[in-house]
Structures are given as structure tokens and as C-alpha cells.
């Protein structure tokens, strides 16, 4: 990939990426009650990463984010599967999700659902997939 040596772009993207990250994480957690969820959050995250890759060199970004996205995909799928298996362990059908309310000091009354765990798996798989696709193509010359 050619290196677009553009200072304005770099400056804008540095800010934008942070905003997008925050937004996509927000999207991800709001997914349970409001529009959002694993897919969207994950895709937003990977969109931000793509932006980074576009703006900077692949190598630079890779040094800063040393993650093998294929492994990320696998971990995501595994998490999803294990939340499903968890249902079996507690004697319910595969992929039965549970939820409950806990009082956590800082956040107050919070709902914790295993569905969120599952969604984390989905999000990780989505990020891993899209990033490894893009990186594979981008790497190839």
C-alpha cells in the first residue's frame, strides 16, 4: 500500500479513530436494549482500524496493535461456542442465555447477561474476519 504522506489526514484520523472506537464500543454495549450489538460494534471497530491502515503504513499500525486477527476470529468463535456450552452445563438447552441484575459499586444497578458474552464473541469474530480479509488483500502485491 502506498503511503499517503498527508499530515492533515493523519491529524484528522487520529481524532476520528478514537471517536469511532468509542462510538462502536458504545454501540456494542447498547445493543441489548437499543440499536447496536455485536455485529455493528465489531464492524464499526474494524472500520476504524481500516481507516488507520489507510492513513498510516500497515507496518506501523501492526507494530502498535500486535494482534493476529485470524487468532482473534478463532477466539471469538470459541467464546460464542463456550457460552452455548455453558447453557448445557447448567442443564439448559444449548445456547440458552441467562441474565440477572447485580449491584456493582461504580455503575450502580447493572444487568449482566450471558448474551453479552456471546455478543463479545460475535464482535471479536467479526473484527477478526474483516481485518484479516482486508490485511490479506492489502498485503499482497
Amino acid at each position: 500500500m502506498k503511503e499517503p504522506n498527508d499530515i492533515i489526514l493523519h491529524a484528522v484520523i487520529k481524532v476520528a479513530v478514537v471517536i469511532i472506537f468509542t462510538f462502536s464500543i458504545n454501540l456494542f454495549f447498547s445493543g441489548h436494549h437499543n440499536p447496536g450489538g455485536g455485529f455493528i460494534g465489531g464492524l464499526g471497530f474494524s472500520a476504524a482500524l481500516t481507516l488507520l491502515f489507510l492513513a498510516f503504513d500497515i507496518e506501523t499500525v501492526r507494530q502498535n496493535i500486535p494482534v493476529d486477527f485470524k487468532v482473534l476470529t478463532a477466539i471469538g468463535v470459541l467464546i460464542a461456542v463456550f457460552t452455548g456450552v455453558g447453557g448445557i452445563v447448567f442443564g439448559a438447552p444449548f445456547l440458552t442465555q441467562a441474565f440477572n441484575y447485580f449491584d456493582i459499586p461504580v455503575f450502580g444497578k447493572t444487568e449482566l447477561a450471558t448474551a453479552v458474552l456471546f455478543d463479545i464473541g460475535v464482535a471479536m469474530a467479526v473484527i477478526g474476519t474483516s481485518m484479516s480479509i482486508i490485511l490479506s488483500i492489502g498485503d499482497d502485491h
Binding site: F39, L43, V126, T129, S130, I133, S136, I137
Partner: peptide, 15 residues
């Protein structure tokens, strides 16, 4: 989402 994955695969295949 699946469409996204297959499109990517198809693209790379044709490439």
C-alpha cells in the same frame, strides 16, 4: 454480514 464475507471471498477469488 454473510453477504459481506462471501463478497470478500469472491473478490479475492477473482483477484
Amino acid at each position: 454480514v454473510i453477504n459481506f464475507a462471501t463478497t470478500a471471498l469472491f473478490l479475492v477469488l477473482s483477484y
